[in-house]
């Protein structure tokens, strides 16, 4: 069977079993409407938070999933926070970022010990810093989008992942998060990857015992700016 025949046979079999046709106006309309104007289903009450409440919930959920969270009043405080975190965890004083504008605005030079590399993730990076575009407090979930600003490889290859998010970008629900992403991308398609990250990498595949750092970062440090 060639490719288009296979396609038709699968679709035909679905229609046969459902006893429907592909041009039934009511069905076509129902699908068109749902896709054109996506509407939320039930959103848990827990996600109905704003401002400082959402920051508190995000922090609580992330810490519950073994991430570290700290707060920087301004971008100026971030270099010292990062330097201290790396020193405390006995990590090398260097890190890699993409070309993200917010990360570029951080005065990294203030922490003279830090070496800043640019570009996509390499197999032996110890530390990367990325920016989350938004976050859903309901489960402590950061939304990171792929692109030159924040290469996906930086989210997964380094041993330690540091994520910077602006306080104003922290929202309540997944729905809020996706609406923020839709606003950023407008009519353009979604970026190649949207990574929802809620803690460091882990596995429980050996005797159901949780071990951090299965393949991705062993540590996740989240810095809330503002």
């Amino acid at each position: 069977m060639n490719a288009s025949n296979t396609r038709e046979s699968v679709l035909g079999s679905i229609r046969g079993s459902l006893r429907v046709t592909g041009d039934d106006a009511a069905r076509v309309d129902a699908v068109r409407k749902r896709l054109k104007a996506p509407s939320p289903n039930l959103v848990p009450e827990r996600a109905n938070v704003r401002g400082e409440e959402s920051i508190a919930l995000l922090t609580e959920m992330l810490e519950g999933q073994s991430a570290h969270v700290s707060r920087a009043k301004t971008l100026d405080e971030i270099p010292k926070l990062v330097a201290n975190y790396l020193r405390k965890n006995n990590l090398p004083a260097e890190f890699r970022t993409g070309s993200d504008g917010l990360l570029a605005d951080i005065p990294w030079g203030k922490a003279t010990s830090l070496t800043h590399h640019l570009g996509r993730g390499q197999g032996d990076d110890a530390v990367a810093v990325s920016r989350a575009r938004t976050a859903a407090a309901e489960t402590g979930t950061l939304f990171l989008t792929s692109g030159p600003e924040n290469p996906t490889t930086l989210n997964f290859l380094p041993d330690t992942h540091i994520v910077v998010i602006q306080a104003k970008d922290i929202l309540g629900s997944y729905e809020d998060g996706w609406n923020a992403i839709r606003k950023i991308y407008g009519k353009r398609p979604l970026p190649r990857a949207v990574n929802l990250i809620s803690g460091p990498s882990r596995t429980a595949d050996i005797e159901q015992i949780i071990v951090m750092g299965a393949h991705g970062p062993r540590r996740l440090h989240v810095i809330i700016a503002g």
Partner: peptide, 21 residues
């Protein structure tokens, strides 16, 4: 778990200018 550690939404191949993917 409240949610899995990583939930990844993948759409198409890498875009112009993407350094990875």
């Amino acid at each position: 778990q409240e949610c899995s550690t990583y939930t990844t939404f993948s759409t198409g191949p890498k875009r112009d200018g993407d350094p990875d993917g």
